[in-house]
Simulated assay, not measured.
Amino acid sequence: MDQIQHKFVHVGSLKLHVADIGTGPNVVVFLHGFPEIWYSWRHQMIALASAGFRAIAPDYRGYGLSDPPPEPEKASFKVITSDLLRILDALGLAKVFLVAKDYGARPAFLLALEHPGRILGVISLGVPYFPPAPPQFHKYLPEGFYISRWKQPGRAEADFGRFDTKTVLKNIYILFSRSEIPIAEENQEIMDLVDPSTPPPPWFSEEDLAAYAALYEKSGFPNALQVPYRSLGEEYNIADPTTKVAILAVMGGKDYFLKFPGIEDLIKSGKLKEFAPNSEITFIPEGTHFVQEQFPEQVNQLILHFLHKQLKLE
């Protein structure tokens, strides 16, 4: 960890934090989800640097060590994608691989669609390729569905505000590590779904929790709630949502996302290949939503195999 360098890239008036390790000619950019941060990729960054790659993990605007935007309510996936392009330009990176987790896959897929010449391949964790569009899951799930709750301005803020930052993050890691979708009752909040005596997952140490808490104590949660949860309705008006960029989706077999309406059937049907013909999906049977932290060695092997395969095709 002490070999990871930390630098800042200016994007307009903002300074965006980038963690950076390795000196290889081939560069892999890691895009986090929520409640994650650059630190979520610690296992992968070290492994890839040891294998001769350069590994870079930014914090999105308003996350962790990156500056918050002046108007958080205007943050969006399009803005995050634009920030990533400007980071690549500032670092002089013409072509990169992307490894993206959960909603971090959306800007990764947008880059693959809009700038395919700059993307050597995409590995998505927890979600396969979908044409970027507003999701419809909330129409088929109860009112207490966590995404529906967190989309409401002020609802999550009031819920989270009853606890310290470390407890909020611990609860989210516990909830999202289960195989059931977090859904609250009508008069219950999402944080109340976790018994206070429940420990975090065994692969998530007290040191990890402290590292996450320190970063979120700096940034708070306003930007994390805006992107993704309050930006999911964005329209992209992409003429052709088909991508020829090579994509590997790594799914945990016990990821609660597989319980979202229609998802498992859609994945098994192979229909997604219509939009991403050069894509594959692989499962880690015991994996949950945080598969890269839960089974880092397996995920690292899958990433390295994909990278070497694509480089041979170049």
Results as ranks from 00 to 15, higher is better:
residue 77 F to G: 06
residue 59 D to W: 03
residue 40 S to F: 13
residue 89 D to T: 13
residue 71 E to M: 11
residue 81 T to V: 10
residue 44 Q to T: 06
residue 68 P to I: 03
residue 91 L to H: 09
residue 87 I to V: 14
residue 35 P to F: 06
residue 60 Y to R: 02
residue 71 E to T: 15
residue 90 A to I: 11
residue 77 F to A: 09
residue 67 D to E: 12
residue 64 G to T: 06
residue 62 G to Q: 06
residue 62 G to C: 07
residue 39 Y to F: 15
residue 69 P to Q: 03
residue 48 L to G: 00
residue 43 H to L: 02
residue 88 L to W: 04
residue 82 S to Q: 15
residue 84 L to A: 09
residue 67 D to Q: 09
residue 79 V to I: 13
residue 74 K to I: 04
residue 79 V to Q: 10
residue 32 H to R: 02
residue 38 W to Y: 14
residue 90 A to M: 08
residue 34 F to W: 13
residue 79 V to C: 00
residue 89 D to W: 10
residue 73 E to A: 15
residue 84 L to W: 05
residue 62 G to H: 08
residue 73 E to V: 14
residue 68 P to D: 12
residue 85 L to S: 13
residue 58 P to A: 08
residue 87 I to G: 05
residue 61 R to Q: 13
residue 45 M to V: 06
residue 80 I to L: 13
residue 55 A to P: 01
residue 42 R to F: 04
residue 60 Y to V: 01
residue 77 F to Y: 15
residue 78 K to E: 09
residue 47 A to D: 14
residue 92 G to Y: 12
residue 68 P to N: 14
residue 63 Y to K: 05
residue 64 G to N: 08
residue 36 E to Y: 00
residue 83 D to I: 05
residue 63 Y to G: 05
residue 77 F to H: 11
residue 68 P to Y: 01
residue 35 P to D: 07
residue 89 D to G: 08
residue 48 L to Q: 02
residue 91 L to K: 11
residue 38 W to L: 11
residue 29 V to F: 11
residue 68 P to V: 07
residue 63 Y to N: 04
residue 56 I to V: 14
residue 70 P to H: 14
residue 77 F to D: 08
residue 68 P to S: 15
residue 45 M to G: 04
residue 76 S to N: 12
residue 33 G to H: 07
residue 77 F to Q: 08
residue 55 A to M: 00
residue 54 R to E: 05
residue 43 H to Y: 13
residue 68 P to L: 10
residue 51 A to K: 12
residue 59 D to G: 05
residue 90 A to N: 15
residue 42 R to Y: 11
residue 46 I to R: 12
residue 58 P to N: 08
residue 77 F to V: 12
residue 71 E to W: 09
residue 48 L to S: 04
residue 71 E to I: 14
residue 36 E to R: 00
residue 70 P to T: 14
residue 65 L to P: 00
residue 28 V to G: 08
residue 62 G to P: 07
residue 75 A to D: 14
residue 65 L to M: 01
residue 54 R to C: 06
residue 54 R to H: 12
residue 78 K to Q: 12
residue 68 P to C: 12
residue 90 A to F: 06
residue 76 S to R: 10
residue 61 R to K: 07
residue 47 A to N: 11
residue 38 W to A: 13
residue 91 L to G: 09
residue 45 M to W: 04
residue 62 G to I: 04
residue 89 D to Q: 14
residue 29 V to D: 04
residue 45 M to D: 05
residue 38 W to V: 07
residue 51 A to Y: 09
residue 40 S to A: 15
residue 79 V to F: 00
residue 50 S to W: 01
residue 69 P to T: 09
residue 77 F to N: 08
